[in-house]
Simulated scan of single mutants.
Amino acid sequence: MAFSKAQELLRLAMLATGRRGVTLEDIQEEFSCSERTAQRMTFALQAAFPQTDYAIGEDRRARWNIPARAIAPLLTPSSEELVALAEAIVQLDHAGMPKEAAHARSLERKVRALIPPDKGTKLDVDKEAILEALGHAARPGPQPAADEDVVEAIYEALKGPNLLRISYRRRDEDEPSERIVAPHGLLLGVRRYLVARDTGKGPEANLRHYRVEEIYEAEMLAGSFEIDPGFNLKRHAEKGFGSYESEREFGEVVWRFTPDAAAHARRFVFHPTQSAEEGEDGSLTVSFMASGFLEMTWHLYQWGDAVEVLAPQRLREMVHEYRRVFPALP
């Protein structure tokens, strides 16, 4: 068997250890192959792993399942995978998410405990070499700060989901006020926002964003609620450029990058909905649908005079007069 085929077979075996096993449709999607090829792969799976269980599920689809212990000895992580996990921990720490970083560190310890001793030393050496080359020993810079007890209460409420009592201060308030909210999700970015509905304003009230750093106290309540059937956090997040979203600002955004900056700008995905158009002069015009003018302004300042806002007019007015000549691009 070719090495690449062996890797694919092991990958398939890992998929088959899932609680629901793996179907032909899953294999076709994962490996971008035809149904016939997927069938041949299941034959190879059963031949290589006799423990494979075949059954027809309640949805009348064939499923193949393998006990995880059958392939555990074959799943020693690579140094690159350990580096990715270590990098994720650094990013969580930098984002001001100590609880998640602690969970990731616990996962790292568990993974390392399962590595055979004869392979652990080499992996350690490789991992440290890669981390040193990437320069991730320390990464200075601003990061959001929040009360850990508040963050803990938010996460526990999101798991329920349960109602959450918060003490929150708006920008136009001198003192925080108490309210009970129905949390729907958490947006991460330069700032963190709790997406929630204020229950005091009725079941038809719009979802609002609460800055986590401005929540002084939070308590999960016993009462639960149902997430809005049509709510999708990913689609909701796409309404904003960063973590802030405003229906009033939402609309088409168009930026034009100069010919000198176009090649650099092509390497960025500014927004999931963006489209890009090349100009005859070598410039690059990027457009997308979003809101959050202030966060756009913060980002665009880094580009100096290498970018021009074509729309909307209000954003153009916020940016245009403050463009500078910088010695480098972001």
Rank of each mutant, 00 (worst) to 15 (best):
V181F: 11
V181W: 14
A137K: 00
L163Q: 07
E175C: 04
V125Y: 00
E175S: 10
D124E: 05
R169M: 05
E175N: 07
G135Y: 07
N162D: 13
E175M: 12
K127T: 05
E132S: 12
S177Y: 06
L163N: 06
D149Y: 03
A145R: 11
Q143R: 11
R165N: 01
A157F: 06
I166N: 05
P144H: 12
D126G: 01
R165S: 10
H136S: 11
R179S: 03
E173K: 07
D149G: 01
I166V: 15
A145Y: 05
I154Y: 06
R139T: 15
K122L: 00
E173Y: 10
I166H: 13
A145E: 08
G141M: 08
L158N: 00
V150A: 03
G120S: 07
T121Q: 03
P144T: 14
Q143N: 12
V125R: 02
D174H: 06
K119A: 02
D147M: 08
A133E: 06
V181E: 10
D149F: 00
G120T: 00
I154A: 08
P142K: 14
V125N: 00
Y155G: 01
L163D: 04
P140A: 07
R165K: 10
E132F: 13
I154S: 04
E156C: 08
H136N: 05
S167T: 09
A145K: 08
P144F: 13
K159V: 07
Y168A: 11
V150W: 10
D149W: 01
R170N: 13
E178W: 12
I154P: 04
E128G: 02
A133I: 06
D124C: 00
E128A: 13
E173M: 09
E132R: 15
A138M: 12
I166C: 10
L158P: 03
A145L: 15
Y168H: 02
V125I: 04
A146M: 14
D172L: 15
E173A: 08
G120E: 01
T121D: 02
E132M: 13
V125G: 00
A153I: 02
P144C: 11
E128L: 12
L163K: 06
L164Q: 12
K127H: 00
L164P: 05
A133W: 05
G160K: 07
E175V: 14
N162H: 14
R179F: 10
N162M: 02
Y155F: 04
L163R: 02
E152Y: 09
A157E: 02
R169A: 06
S177P: 03
V181H: 15
D124P: 01
A129H: 02
D149L: 01
S177G: 13
K159P: 02
L134R: 09
K159T: 05
L163C: 08
A146I: 13
E173F: 07
G141R: 05
G120A: 07
P140N: 10
P161Y: 05
A138C: 10
E173N: 11
V150K: 05
Q143D: 12
E148D: 15
E156V: 08
I180V: 12
R139N: 08
D124L: 00
K159L: 11
V151H: 01
D172W: 12
Y168K: 04
I166G: 10
G160A: 15
R170I: 04
A145S: 15
A146R: 13
